Amino acid sequence: MADLKYDVAGIGNALVDVIANADDKFLTANGIEKGGMTLIDAERADELYGKMAASIEMSGGSCANTIAGLASLGGKGAFFGKVRGDQLGEVFIHDIKSLGVAFPASQATDGAPTGRCLIIVTPDAQRSMSTFLGAAQKLGPDDIDPETIKAAAVTYMEGYLWDEPGAKEAFLKAAKIAHEAGRLVSLTLSDSFCVDRFRDEFRRLATDEVDLLFANEAEILSLYETEVFDEALQQVRKDCKFAALTRSEQGSVIVADGEVHVVDAEPVSKVVDTTGAGDLFAAGFLYGLTRGKDPVTCGRLGALAAAEVISHYGPRPQVSLAELAKQKGLA
């Protein structure tokens, strides 16, 4: 068995986020689904970009944000994602490596450019995403380095990847390697619209492949086709050994070996942008888990990281999460 070198090895879409403010009228006029993620093509990406107000551009992608948050807490991470060898690709690789995160996947030398996510933030701090995956779609099983997976305590994947057959193969390959090495496998459902498309497959993953499931309330309700949270909670207790379910200002509910723990949300003076809230919750939770913390402390670390990221624009922390955790007595 390989020695542990990483806390988490993440597999996800390598994207550059483009974030701008707009009102609900802009969403309606441009056919953007509020609060969700819609896949778009290159032509649509260019069209929307031309209509957006002044924007902030930064490296993103759901799983990559989680690994960035883990690094801010002092954890060790690796990330598998595909970028093109273009300007945005170079920016992404520079940003992820500057955090001390390993990036084993190779750059694409032809085909679509590096992907980007166009994010509209409305006055209620909700984010609506239009995503051009670009080169991220080319991630496949050959991009997964077995030794990196074996050397990580947890292999973590974003549900957004399930749109691409090659990415599915990559995750199943990584999950098999991780379990054979005695490691944990984790999945975040990512988006209720994503769950709607792949519900049956996600249910099978939850019962057969995944040790730790992350979901927000809308996602877990969609997964189990119910409008009652407690019904979904009881079902996930049967399907998963561990589950972390976030409920915005109501905090989170953690399932661990059949027991249920309720964790309060961390207070926030003002919610500016909810982009990355779930990603950073996962970062805090995974950091606590890989440090042997109890479920409630893991949830509190997740809440702390999520609270920091929603207090400003962008999906990655702007201050040291390790320092915040120390101040809260969670380090």
Rank of each mutant, 00 (worst) to 15 (best):
K5G: 05
D7R: 09
V8D: 12
G12C: 15
N13G: 11
A14G: 09
A14H: 04
D17R: 02
K25H: 12
G31D: 00
E33Y: 13
G36C: 06
A42N: 00
D46E: 14
D46N: 14
E47G: 12
G50L: 03
G50Q: 02
G61D: 02
A64D: 08
T66C: 15
G77L: 08
R84N: 00
L88A: 12
I93T: 15
D95F: 01
I96V: 15
L99A: 10
T109W: 03
G111N: 10
A112S: 15
P113W: 06
P113Y: 06
L118G: 03
I120S: 02
D124N: 13
L133A: 11
K138Q: 11
I144S: 00
A152Q: 02
G159A: 01
Y160V: 10
W162V: 07
D163R: 02
D163P: 04
K168L: 08
K168I: 12
A170S: 09
L172T: 11
L172Y: 13
E180D: 14
E180T: 02
A181G: 01
G182H: 05
V185E: 00
L187T: 11
T188S: 15
S192T: 03
F193L: 00
C194Y: 05
D196Q: 12
F202K: 12
F202G: 11
D208G: 08
L212T: 14
E219V: 05
E219D: 08
I220F: 00
S222M: 08
S222W: 05
Y224M: 05
T226G: 07
T226D: 06
T226F: 05
E227M: 10
V228F: 13
F229R: 07
E231Q: 14
Q234N: 13
D239I: 08
K241P: 06
K241I: 09
A244W: 06
R247K: 13
A256H: 14
V260H: 00
V268K: 07
G278R: 05
L280V: 11
A282H: 10
D294I: 06
T297S: 06
C298I: 03
C298A: 06
G299I: 05
L301G: 02
G302K: 07
A305E: 07
P317R: 09
P317N: 03
V319C: 02
A325G: 11
G329Y: 12
L330M: 00
